[in-house]
C-alpha cells in the first residue's frame, strides 16, 4: 500500500493524517510535508498514525527530523498511535521517551490545550 497524507489545522495545532506504509520509498514525501508545514509557520504538529500499516527506521528518522525542526521554533511534534506493531519500533529505539504518544487525536488535543 502506498502512502496517503492529509493535514488540517485546529486552533494552533496542525494535524497530519498518515495512511499506508512509511518506508525508504515513501518517507521522503512525509519529510517534504513536515518541512513545508514548518516553513509555513506550523510549529505544533500532531501526526495521526492510526492508519499506518508499516513504519521503519527511515520513517522514524523523518519524524525525528520533524521534531528537531519544530523544537527549533519552540514547537512540538506529537503522535497518535495505538497499534502495537508500530509502538514496538518506538520502544526498541527508545523513542517513546522522545515523542509524546497519545491514544487518540482528542486526547492529544486535550493535552496540547493544557500545555498552552
Amino acid at each position: 500500500m502506498d502512502l496517503k497524507l492529509d493535514h488540517h489545522s485546529e486552533d494552533s495545532l496542525t494535524i497530519v493524517d498518515v495512511e499506508g506504509e512509511i518506508d525508504v520509498y515513501t518517507a521522503p514525501r512525509l519529510r517534504e510535508l513536515l518541512i513545508d508545514l514548518v516553513n509555513k509557520g506550523n510549529f505544533h504538529l500532531l501526526v495521526n498514525m492510526e492508519k499506518v500499516d508499516f513504519l521503519d527506521s527511515t520513517g522514524l528518522g523523518v519524524l525525528v527530523g520533524g521534531l528537531k525542526r519544530v523544537r527549533a521554533h519552540d514547537g512540538s511534534l506529537e503522535l497518535v498511535c495505538t497499534q502495537e506493531r508500530i509502538l514496538k519500533i518506538f520502544r526498541i529505539t527508545g523513542l517513546t521517551k522522545v515523542f509524546g504518544i497519545y491514544a487518540s487525536v482528542d486526547e492529544a488535543k486535550e493535552a496540547h490545550g493544557r500545555d498552552k
Binding site: D56, S57, T58, L60, G61, I89, I92, T93
Partner: peptide, 9 residues
C-alpha cells in the same frame, strides 16, 4: 545516520 538506527531495530 539512520543506518545505525536500522541496525538497532
Amino acid at each position: 545516520e539512520m543506518a545505525e538506527l536500522g541496525v538497532a531495530v
